[in-house]
Nucleic acid binder design. Structure first.
Length: 286
DNA sequence: GACCAGGACCATT
DNA sequence: AATGGTCATGGT
């Protein structure tokens, strides 16, 4: 394929708005009926049209696999949703209200760092922190004429070179020492983010939770959103509320019990089910 | 001015 | 094993 700035990706059952606002990614901006972000150091705008997502880049591309991987456009959603328990009324309601919601496939470092920053923060605030961090410490990327400046997510090297105080100036509070420590461990080779890919879910979770500031919930976010482990099942306050409300008569239930329930109830794509429940309760029932 | 947020960690029971 | 306090910060 000759290099070009524009590509129409054929899609069906793909709701870009729901996907971008469902708390997976924090560095994308809504613009002109679509979204603008940076993937693999490429500025890209995405706009839904009939049957396609139209992607426009700032520099000519001959290989678009970085984008199709990120968007997971090859995933056939109906087949995936068909693995959900059919007798689960609440989950089926979530599937209906969140029609076209997708899981993205993010670069591990950006995902890990973002979710280290997410701890007990609202999504709007996480977006603010990530935006500030990228603008101050990320490498600028080429943008089309007339567009706002855009920045890649800071690499582990870029963050490891900073001080905790500099990071705190990005309003991340006590999370600064966690982010700095994670970046330095990656740079030192003590944590190999690529090798995690080939581990079992349990071993991978164990590796990630060795980082300070990374517990089971944040680890599962990274395992699901970056590595694509289909049964990783992050349980935050919203998902915990949804599970307790839908399956435990509203009784507050210990996280470990919720975990075991999720593992046996939701099937081979439990992580996807989790994302539907999360977005459903946040947009419909909140 | 409370109250809460895609939590994790540590000290007490 | 199970609670309770603490950590920063800003939106609602």
């Amino acid at each position: 394929m000759s290099p070009r700035y524009e590509l129409d990706l054929p899609v069906s059952n793909y709701d870009l708005d729901a996907t971008m606002t469902s708390g997976q990614v924090f560095a994308w901006e809504q613009w002109d009926n679509g979204w603008v972000g940076v993937v693999s150091a490429n500025w890209v705008s995405l706009r839904p049209h009939a049957g396609v997502i139209r992607a426009i880049t700032a520099t000519p591309q001959s290989d678009w696999s970085w984008l199709t991987t990120f968007l997971q456009t090859d995933v056939h959603l109906p087949d995936l949703l068909a693995t959900f328990p059919t007798d689960d009324f609440n989950l089926q309601a979530a599937v209906k209200t969140c029609h076209g919601l997708r899981l993205l496939r993010q670069p591990p470092w950006e995902c890990l760092a973002s979710f280290i920053l997410s701890s007990t923060k609202q999504i709007v605030q996480i977006r603010q922190i990530v935006r500030t961090l990228c603008a101050r410490h990320g490498t600028p990327v080429a943008v089309p004429a007339g567009q706002h400046p855009a920045f890649a997510f800071p690499t582990p090297e870029q963050i490891a070179a900073l001080s905790e105080k500099e990071l705190r100036h990005c309003k991340m509070g006590f999370r600064a020492k966690y982010l700095l420590s994670a970046a330095r461990r990656v740079v030192a080779g003590e944590l190999d983010l690529e090798s995690i890919r080939q581990l079992s879910l349990e071993s991978a979770r164990e590796e990630l939770t060795k980082l300070s500031g990374v517990g089971e919930k944040i680890a599962d976010c990274v395992l699901l959103f970056a590595y694509g482990f289909p049964t990783a099942f992050p349980i935050d306050v919203w998902v915990a509320r949804a599970l307790s409300q839908f399956y435990f008569k509203g009784r507050r239930t210990h996280p470990e019990k919720l975990r075991r329930f999720a593992a046996r109830h939701f099937g081979p794509n439990a992580g996807y089910a989790q994302q539907y429940l999360f977005h459903h309760v946040r947009t419909q029932l909140a």
